[in-house]
Design a protein around this nucleic acid. Sequence first.
DNA 1: TCGTCTTACGAGAAGCGTAAGAATT
DNA 2: AATTCTTACGCTTCTCGTAAGACGA
Lengths: 297, 297
Amino acid sequence: MDPHLLTTFTTVARHGSFSAAAAELGYTQSAISQQIAALEADLGVALLGRRPVEPTPAGRRLLEHAGPLLLRLRAARADVLRAAAQPRHRLRLAATPLAVNAVLAARLARARAQQPRLEVTLLTCGREQVATMVAEGEADLGLADGVAAPSDPLRLPDTGPMTTAGVSEEELRVALPADHPLAGRAALRLADLVDARWLQTPLCPLARLRDLVGEGFAAALDYRGDDVHTVVNLVAAGHGLTLLPASVLPAAPAPSGCGALARGVPLASPRLVHRVELLHGALPPGPAADLAVALSP
Amino acid sequence: MDPHLLTTFTTVARHGSFSAAAAELGYTQSAISQQIAALEADLGVALLGRRPVEPTPAGRRLLEHAGPLLLRLRAARADVLRAAAQPRHRLRLAATPLAVNAVLAARLARARAQQPRLEVTLLTCGREQVATMVAEGEADLGLADGVAAPSDPLRLPDTGPMTTAGVSEEELRVALPADHPLAGRAALRLADLVDARWLQTPLCPLARLRDLVGEGFAAALDYRGDDVHTVVNLVAAGHGLTLLPASVLPAAPAPSGCGALARGVPLASPRLVHRVELLHGALPPGPAADLAVALSP
DNA sequence: TCGTCTTACGAGAAGCGTAAGAATT
DNA sequence: AATTCTTACGCTTCTCGTAAGACGA
C-alpha cells in the first residue's frame, strides 16, 4: 500500500486509462501497468477491470479510502515542515466568499493595525479547498462558512488534527425576490418550504438542509460557482430560493420591481445560523497565532 | 513519507533507541539508522535528537500524525479485502463491557434464532480497541458504549469511513454506596457534584464529564481495567462516585450496610444517557448485515 | 571501554524504460 | 488494423546486512 501506487491507482481510475494516467504522471504505460499489478499483488485482489478500465467493487472501496489518505499524508508533511520552519512575515489566508463578512473584515483590520509590517494575502475559494489549503500548509489560516444549527460546528472534510473555532454566527434568512408572494411574511418555517423552488449552491447546499430538516428541497437550478453577487442576482430573477446571512440582504424592503431582492424573511424554525469557522494547524507563536486570537470574538 | 519508514520512526521514538526498534522490527541497527536518515532527508527536517534519542519538535508533530495515518492505512487494506472476500459463516463481534446490556443481548439472541447455523464470537475490550478492531477488520461488528447527551453521538477515534449508529440509550444514574448521605435523593444535578470524590474509569471517563459540564471532577481513584463488577464494588466500598446505566444498579434500595450499592440517583441536569453505538465498515449482504439490522431498534 | 549510532561497501531486490507480444474493438 | 494493456529483458536505483568507524557516557 505504497502511497505512490495509491496515487497511480486513483489517477488511472479517474482517467479510465493506463496510458492517460502515464501521460499525467510522467511515466510510460508499462510502468503504470507494473504499478497497478504490484498493488493488486500486494492486496491479493483485482482492483481494476481492463477493457474497459473500470474499478472492481474492491477497487471502488480503495478509491474511497485513497483520497482522504493521501490528503492526510500531505497534511502531515506540511505540518511537520511548518513546525520546523521559521516564523514568516507573510501570512496567507484562505476564505470562502461569505466568510469575510463585515464583522470579520473589521476584526482583521484591527489586527493588522497592530502589526502594520505584516504582509497578508487573502484568497477566496470553496469550502473544501479552504480546508485542504490549511491542511497542506498552503494557507496559514482558513475561514470557512456554512449553514448550521446555533453553536453547532460545521462539517468540514477530515484532514487530520486541525483546530477549528467558531468566530462568527449570524442570522440566516430566506432570500427571495421582492415580488415573491412570501416576501412580506414576518417569519417562515423551513419545513413549509420543502416543496418550493430552491437554488442549489455551494454557499447553501440543499443536502445540508435535508440533513437538518428532512427530505425535499429539489434543486430548480444548480449553481456551481461560489460568487455571492451571482447568487443574489439569480434569486432576484426568480430562479429559486436560498438562505443567506442577513447582512448580505438589503436592509430595507426593495421597491417591488424586476430583479430586486426582498429584505429576506427570518426563519422561525429550525433556528439556523450562518456560521464562520477559523481553521488552522498547529500555530507557532508569531503573527499567525496573533491573528487567530484577534479574529476570535 | 513511506509508511514503512513511518512505522520505523514511531517504533524508534517509542523505544527511545535505534537498536531496540531494530530488534522489534527484525532489522539490523544499521538499517534503522538508514531508514531514519532517509525519512529525515525526505522531509528535510531533523526528527530525532541522538543521545538521547528523542523526538525534535518537528518529530513530535510527525508522531501525532503517524499513528492515525497508519491506522487508516490498515483500515483501508482491511476494507478492500473485506469487499473482495466471500461472506463467511463466522461472525466476530467486539464490544465494550457495558455495551452488551439486557436489551442488546436479547436482540442478539433473537437474531441468532433466525440464523442458527451462524457461529458468533464475542470479544470484550476497551472503546478504542473496539473501533480499531472494526476498522482493521478483526471484528465484523463492534458495539461501543459511552456517556453522551441524549441523541448525541459518542466521540470515537477517527479511523476513516465507518458507519456508526446508535442502537440503545438508557438512563444514566449516579452510583453511590447505600450508606452515602446523598443515596436517598430523588435526583441530583451533576454540577453540584463537581467537588465530590469520583472514580476515574474507562467506562465513565472524568474528562468526558468535564467536557459536558465544566471543570472539576477530580479522581479519587483511577481504575484502569474495564470490568463492571470491579467498578460496582469500588463504588460500594466508598472509593468514589461514578455514573452507571440504571440497569446495572440494584433495582431496590439495598439495606444499608457495608459494601452495598444504593439504587442510584437519577440525574436532573444535564440529562445524560448511556449510549451504545454499533460500528461497522461496509457490509456485504450476508450474516453481518442481517445482524446489524437486527441489533438496531 | 562499552554501548550506541553512523558510514562504507557489496549483494540482492525492486522499479523503470524499451520493445515485443497479446487481446479487444 | 488500430489501440491498449501485458510481458520480457536489461539497466539503474534502492535497500539491506556486514563490518568498520565515530561519538558519548
